[in-house]
Design a protein around this nucleic acid. Sequence first.
DNA 1: CCTTTATTTAGATAATTGTCTAACTATCTA
DNA 2: TAGATAGTTAGACAATTATCTAAATAAAGG
Lengths: 91, 91
Amino acid sequence: MSATLVFKALADPTRRAIIDLLKEQDMTAGDIAEQFNMKKPSISHHLSTLQTAELVLSERNGQHIIYSLNTTVFQDIMMWMMNVSGKENEK
Amino acid sequence: MSATLVFKALADPTRRAIIDLLKEQDMTAGDIAEQFNMKKPSISHHLSTLQTAELVLSERNGQHIIYSLNTTVFQDIMMWMMNVSGKENEK
DNA sequence: CCTTTATTTAGATAATTGTCTAACTATCTA
DNA sequence: TAGATAGTTAGACAATTATCTAAATAAAGG
């Protein structure tokens, strides 16, 4: 897990909105794109960024590609966060 | 708290290293800069980014400016993370 | 096969970012 | 008040990023 890639991925509001959608249910690239006022290639690029950061997973189903959250990485980042705010409390 | 500013701030390895230092103890800008193979203005810029994201606080003490962590924002981000990995578990 | 639908890849462009050097501001002390 | 020390601000430049349009790939159905 690369913290830099993960935080870069999370630093964009559109990508966080995609994550918010995927929290509710797995979705196809097309269905995700429909939710945004942005061209499909741009959403595809955001999905690729999320995937490189290992925040989402994808699986092809016929013509569709279905995206889902990979919660493992969220947990890893939370650990890092907890370590930061934990150490501080030791002061 | 702006999630975009916070994640952008965390997306840089130097800034995360600064946070790691500040976990251990509050430090002056100069002492922080000494730890990196980078000119002072660059570190100053990174500190400014961290401060804009409200991840660190600063206080002048004579000639020195002392930086410290602001753990409140870390907690806020953790909440957001927990919400993501929590919802997923409801599937 | 040919067409349609779903999605990605390529290439262009404007905006943002990280780093540097040079110059500035603030504080202390002799 | 002049000089030294601590730190920031300004301006430049190369690298990265977010978006777009156009073209390419993949799968399904006639």
